[in-house]
Design a protein around this nucleic acid. Sequence first.
RNA 1: CGGGGUGUACCUCAGUGGUAGAGGGGUAGCUUUGGGAGCUACCAGUCGCGGGUUCGAAUCCCGCCACCCCGACCA
Length: 578
Amino acid sequence: MRISKMLFVTKKEEPADAEVRSHALMVRAGFIQQIAAGIYVYGPLMWRVLRKVEEIVREEHDKAGCQEMLMPALQPRELWEESGRWERYVSEKILYHFEDGRGREVCLGPTHEEVITNFVKGKLNSYKQLPQTLYQIQTKFRDEMRPRFGLMRGREFVMKDAYSFDADAEGMAASYAKMRQVYRNIFSRCGLRFTPVEADAGAIGGSGSEEFMVDAETGEDAIAVCHATGYAANTEKAVSRIAAPPEPAAEVAMHKEPTPGAKSCDDLVALFPDLPVERMLKTILYRATWADREQTVAVMCRGDREINTIKVLNHLDALAVDLADEKLVKQATGANVGFAGPIGLSDDVLLLADSSVEGVKGFLCGGNETDTHYLDVWFGRDLEQPLTKDFGMVQAGDQTVDGEGTIEITRGIEVGHIFQLGTKYSESMDCRFSDENGKLQPFQMGCFGIGISRTAASAVEQGHDEGGMIWPLPIAPYHVMLIQMRAGDEAQEALGQELHDQLTAAGIEVLWDDRKMGAGGKFKDADLVGIPLRVVVGRDAADRKVEWKPRTGGETEVIAADDVLGRIQAALEEAGCA
RNA sequence: CGGGGUGUACCUCAGUGGUAGAGGGGUAGCUUUGGGAGCUACCAGUCGCGGGUUCGAAUCCCGCCACCCCGACCA
């Protein structure tokens, strides 16, 4: 394709509102344009990238026996009432919903468990038809509270979602394991560095779940990894083993200490320099919300640790667990914020503790009285140890639970998430099949998502330099950038055309910069757009010589025009997209 | 939804009460031609919207809207 005939518009200046490189570069290069918060136009080059990602996704799914289909984005309220998710999605303000012209309520699908479950109902009737996995690639709509980072978190985005149907839990686990491999293949083929991690299932529900994280500093998720043991988990879910707390020198009776203004552990460390922070126990207050009630919950943990509210939420099986506001803290503790403790809390407060408090002797904790803490407190002696469970957040330097390795915290972009749903939707929507004994059973379902547009953006987040984007060859908008130095030069024009035609005939996608403009601008644009392979037709065109100049790495090399095709084919093969 | 910020040309921005600006961009011409080249001329704005104060408002005040950033959800 000749650039001179294309809508190819780049900007010299960065957009003012782009926070991350992928966003800024894609806007500068004209790949995307924002039209509202979290809503983007995909330009011709972007669309080529998205189609390449989609094609890899399709091929891998089809190879694994999955069947592609397409479900509607527009969905009736009734379907969501059946699964019981309407209320929750509406109250969490995720769902785009409105009345149609006849006063019926509809929504734009944020996900498709309801539609697919409804679709297979009455079609998959027998265990003999199982297992099956169906998928689609489609635009999803979610009214994100905070869209950001360009395509990373949009309100409208392209997603691949797949759903598996099995007769029993073993079957579901097998379907899940198969998809796990499909996902590894997909992200590998896209040329991305990624880490599969154990994950929390969140609002989708179900048992096991894993996320696929593209390694990137700017990722929104923190992940705990251990290179020695191969452990990898989202910090929402991650577990670890921590060092035992230091023992007190002597057993002293519990007593109150004045601690004016000491609201945080830092303040207390300053006040009690001889007391290790591991022997200061924090008590954090939360408000837990269920569909029909609320409850104030206090969770204790060691001073050097943090609470993981997702673990608390899962333990309580609540809809939400939020940090208590000042008013609630005063009501529960009778004190200002910063002095909550386990002793003398209001009776209606549920007290829990993270396992980090186990074995802590002679500790300091809040006094439930402004400017007061208790010192030298012992569980068993001064109060009973509350229900203790892992409610903690892993920290860099923790041991893995098996004690075989050390955890470090890195960041990633969640591009895929796979779930074992179990019977959550098949039960609620009464979607069943007949088993070997003729008994009706709900399907064991799995669901599997890939953010197509996010995957594309994450490739840029992972591949860029000061000059611009660096696309992995398998998903680059074109395979090769053919730069013709001077428009109008006869030898260059002829060789450019010859190469373009030859490569195109060989199935290679060529972006041919034949524009009448200075060399500087062409090179800058080539760097910005980031086509990984580059051929320059310039002053040696009459001798049938060109420059081989990949986007990154390596010196510029003068090669014979006749060798270009071979070079490109070798590069394609090496990148696994031959 | 809470807290903070910004809205001026297609883009990036300057402009603190007195005739709306610069750079980039686009168009035309001449010169140039290996890392965003030079000159000339031209194009381009209801200063987010509504109200108010004032002889006079981009500028001051009030309201609204949009976008961005920081916190709770998710691909």
